Simulated scan of single mutants.
Amino acid sequence: MAILPIRIMGDPVLHSPAAEVDEITDEVRQLVRDMYETMDAAPGVGLAAPQVGVSLRLYVYTYQDDDGRPWRGVVINPVLWMKPTEPGSPDPDEESEGCLSFPGERFPLRRSEEVLVTGIDLDGSPVRIQVEGWRARIMQHEFDHLDGVLYIDRLSDSDWKTTQKIARKRGWGRPGVSWTPGVDDLDA
Rank of each mutant, 00 (worst) to 15 (best):
I3S: 04
P5Y: 07
P5F: 09
I6Y: 05
I6N: 01
I6D: 09
G10Y: 05
G10N: 03
D11M: 06
P12W: 03
H15Q: 14
S16K: 15
A19F: 12
A19Y: 13
E20L: 14
D26P: 00
D26W: 01
E27I: 02
V28T: 01
D34K: 10
E37H: 13
T38N: 09
D40P: 00
D40V: 14
D40L: 14
V45H: 02
G46W: 04
L47C: 05
A48V: 01
A49P: 04
P50Q: 05
P50I: 06
G53Q: 03
V54G: 00
V54I: 12
S55C: 09
S55T: 09
L56H: 08
R57C: 12
L58E: 04
L58W: 06
V60I: 08
V60Q: 07
Y61G: 00
D66N: 12
D66S: 10
G73N: 11
V74W: 09
V75A: 01
V79L: 12
V79W: 09
K83H: 14
P84E: 10
P84T: 07
E86S: 15
E86Y: 12
E86V: 14
P87H: 06
G88F: 06
S89D: 15
P90C: 00
D91T: 03
P92S: 07
D93V: 09
E94D: 12
E94G: 00
S96I: 01
E97A: 07
E97F: 10
E97D: 10
G98M: 04
C99D: 11
L100C: 13
L100I: 09
S101F: 01
F102M: 13
P103V: 00
P103R: 03
G104T: 08
G104F: 04
F107S: 03
P108M: 08
P108V: 01
L109D: 03
L109R: 08
R110C: 10
S112D: 02
E113Y: 13
E113M: 13
V115L: 06
L116T: 15
L116D: 09
L116F: 05
L116C: 13
T118N: 11
I120H: 07
L122H: 10
V127M: 04
I129G: 01
Q130F: 07
V131S: 03
E132K: 15
G133E: 12
W134Q: 13
W134N: 06
R135P: 11
A136S: 12
Q140F: 05
H141Q: 07
D144K: 04
D147Y: 11
G148E: 05
G148M: 02
G148A: 03
L150C: 01
Y151A: 08
R154S: 03
L155C: 03
L155P: 01
D159H: 13
K161P: 02
K161M: 10
T163I: 04
Q164S: 02
K165E: 15
K165M: 12
A167F: 04
R168P: 11
K169L: 11
R170Y: 06
G171K: 06
G171M: 05
W172F: 07
G173Q: 07
G173D: 02
R174N: 07
R174K: 15
P175C: 02
G176K: 06
P181H: 11
P181R: 05
G182Q: 10
V183I: 13
D184Q: 11
D185S: 15
D185H: 12
D187W: 15
A188N: 14
A188G: 14
